[in-house]
C-alpha cells in the first residue's frame, strides 16, 4: 500500500530524513518510535505532502502510484489521512461543517455526487457514538477551546468519517488521559480492517498496549535503524533509546 524507498527530505536546507525505507501493507499496523528530533513528525508530514519540506531523494508510492508530485489534498483523496500532533483551530467553522466539506471534496474528486444530508447525518451519529462524542461538540468551532484530549478525539472522529486507506497517527496519545486513550484506541481498533493500514507514531509504548502493532520501527537521526515485532516497543520502554544509539554506533 505505502512504499517508501531511500527517502531524503529537508527543511530550510537542513536534512531531516536521511534515507527512509518502509513498506506498509493492507491490514497492517506499524509503529514508528524514536526520541525527540529523530524525524518522526517530518516523516508523517512528508507522506501527507506538506510543502514546507523538500524531498531531495527517494520515492514514495501509494497504491502502486508515485505520489511525490501530488498536492496534499490529492493524497487525501486517495485515502491518506494524518491525525495531527497539534490540530489547528478554525474559528467559526463547526466540526460538522468542516467534515461535510471534507467528505464532499473527496467525493467530488472521485466523480461522485455530494453525500445526501440524511446519509451524512447518519454517519455523523454513528461515528460520534463510536468515539463517545457529545453531539453538542459537533457544533463547536473546529478545535477552538478544545482540551488536548478533545482535539485528539476529534482527529480520530474525522478519521472515522473519512474512512482512509492509510491512517497516520502522529503522537495521538500525547495530551490524553487514560480514559480518553482507551476511547481513542478502541475507535482506531474498530476502524481497522484487512483493507486499511495504520501507522502509529509515538514516543511511548503506552499507546501500543491499546493499538497493538505488527511491526515496530525505531527512527534515529532520520533513518530507521531497527525494526521488529511488538516486543521491540517493550524493550525500548524498558531500556530507553540509548542502547540503540550505542548499537547503531557500533
Amino acid at each position: 500500500m505505502l512504499k517508501i524507498e531511500n527517502l531524503h527530505a529537508s527543511i530550510d536546507d537542513k536534512e531531516i530524513l536521511r534515507g527512509i525505507n518502509l513498506e506498509v501493507k493492507p491490514g497492517e499496523v506499524h509503529a514508528i518510535m524514536g526520541p525527540n528530533g529523530s524525524g518522526k513528525s517530518t516523516l508523517s508530514s512528508v507522506i501527507a505532502g506538506n510543502e514546507d519540506f523538500e524531498v531531495t531523494d527517494g520515492k514514495i508510492s501509494f497504491l502502486e502510484e508515485d505520489i511525490a508530485e501530488l498536492a496534499p489534498e490529492e493524497r487525501a483523496h486517495k485515502g491518506i489521512f494524518l491525525s495531527f500532533q497539534y490540530p489547528v483551530e478554525i474559528p467559526g467553522v463547526s466540526v460538522t461543517n468542516f467534515m461535510k466539506t471534507a467528505i464532499n471534496e473527496s467525493r467530488r474528486a472521485q466523480g461522485l455526487e455530494d453525500m445526501p444530508a440524511n446519509e451524512m447525518l447518519k454517519k455523523i451519529r454513528e461515528k460520534s457514538e463510536l468515539l463517545e462524542i457529545d453531539r453538542k461538540f459537533l457544533s463547536r468551532s473546529l478545535n477552538q477551546g478544545f482540551s488536548g484530549g478533545e482535539k485528539k478525539r476529534n482527529e480520530i472522529f474525522q478519521m472515522a468519517m473519512l474512512e482512509p486507506k492509510l491512517a497516520i497517527l502522529d503522537e495521538t496519545d500525547s495530551g490524553l488521559d487514560i480514559d480518553a486513550l482507551r476511547i481513542v484506541s478502541d475507535g482506531v481498533n474498530r476502524l481497522k480492517s484487512k483493507d486499511n493500514a495504520v501507522v502509529v507514531i509515538t514516543h511511548y509504548q503506552r499507546l501500543l498496549e491499546y493499538i497493538v502493532p505488527d511491526y515496530v520501527h525505531v527512527l534515529l537521526n532520520g533513518r530507521i535503524v531497527k525494526s521488529g515485532g511488538k516486543e521491540l516497543a517493550l524493550e525500548l520502554e524498558e531500556k530507553g533509546y540509548d542502547w540503540i544509539k550505542q548499537e547503531v554506533a557500533v
Binding site: E73, P87, A102, I103
Partner: peptide, 9 residues
C-alpha cells in the same frame, strides 16, 4: 495544510 490534508484544496 490542515484543510488540504482533509482533502480540501
Amino acid at each position: 495544510f490542515y484543510c488540504n490534508q482533509r482533502g480540501i484544496d
